[in-house]
């Protein structure tokens, strides 16, 4: 079967610094993949290359068998790729509802309409309600993002990505900075993502993330060091070498 997401021998060089040094990955449809690795291993750079925020120096990226390496980021979104950001990247002066509506509209032709009322679109309002409900924030729909708590903003991050109805979802440290309770809530939220959606997640918090993952990829110095099931990766000597510096 065609993998949902495939990365072949991807390279990225900034100036003289090689950040991604020949990464190859293949994520099956419906899989939950966890990307781990120390700081500076090139995890977020890999996401930026996959979404088109950065252009690779070499290598190819395929989404369901389609080569997207040369496509603009926005076109990748239309092909079913969505992501969240490690640093909150929301529309701070808009309400939660408007944030989600913007995400919903991004792949709809009527985003170009210059005269229709944005907030008088029943179908869009209902869809936004559903997504906010999905992340447990429906009660804050009319609150501006900048007036919500950090933990809530993390969930809005996920809500925006879910609103895009992606086939492949990239989550960049969805647990970053959350309390234990909030982590459980977000874990439940990620656990409830429909199985058909493929999820690739960067996360440092193993406790929260390991249970969600089918397979794990360990990156270091821009290279895939180990890849396998949870048990395989944990048991691998190279994993310990990377994390313990041994």
């Amino acid at each position: 079967m065609t993998p949902a997401l495939e990365v072949r021998d991807l390279h990225k060089v900034f100036g003289g610094l090689t950040v991604t040094n020949g990464v190859s990955l293949s994520v099956a449809a419906g899989e939950r993949r966890l990307l781990i690795g120390p700081n500076g291993a090139g995890k977020t750079t890999l996401f930026n290359l996959i979404t088109g925020d950065l252009r690779p120096t070499g290598g190819r990226i395929l989404l369901f068998g389609t080569d997207i390496t040369a496509l603009a980021g926005r076109r990748r979104a239309h092909l079913g790729l969505a992501r969240t950001y490690q640093i909150i990247t929301l529309f701070p002066n808009e309400t939660l509802r408007h944030n989600v509506m913007l995400a919903l509209l991004g792949i709809l032709p009527r985003r170009w309409n210059p005269l229709r009322r944005f907030d008088r679109d029943p179908a869009l309002l209902a869809a936004a309600e559903t997504v906010l409900d999905q992340v447990g924030l429906a009660h804050l729909a009319l609150r501006q993002v900048r007036e919500t708590a950090y933990g809530e903003q993390r969930r809005v991050e996920i809500a925006l990505a879910l609103a895009q109805r992606p086939r492949v979802l990239l989550l960049d440290e969805p647990f970053a900075g959350l309390s234990a309770q909030e982590r459980r809530d977000v874990a439940a939220l990620i656990g409830a993502i429909p199985p058909a959606m493929t999820v690739v997640m960067i996360e440092h918090d193993m406790d929260a993330a390991l249970d969600l993952a089918d397979r794990i990829t360990l990156l270091d110095f821009g290279l895939v060091v180990v890849e396998g099931t949870r048990a395989e990766v944990v048991a691998d000597a190279r994993t310990r070498a990377v994390y313990l510096g041994g």
């Binding site: 088109g52 979104a77 990247t89 808009e94 991004g106 985003r111 925006l160």
Partner: peptide
């Protein structure tokens, strides 16, 4: 009408988060 339209709200989006707008599928 324009500033309250999807296009107008998207324009505000490009002011605050151009990068995210691209990731959401908009041509910034």
């Amino acid at each position: 009408r324009f500033v309250h339209s999807p296009l107008g709200v998207a324009l505000r989006g490009t002011r605050d988060q151009p990068r995210r707008m691209g990731a959401l599928g908009y041509n910034v």
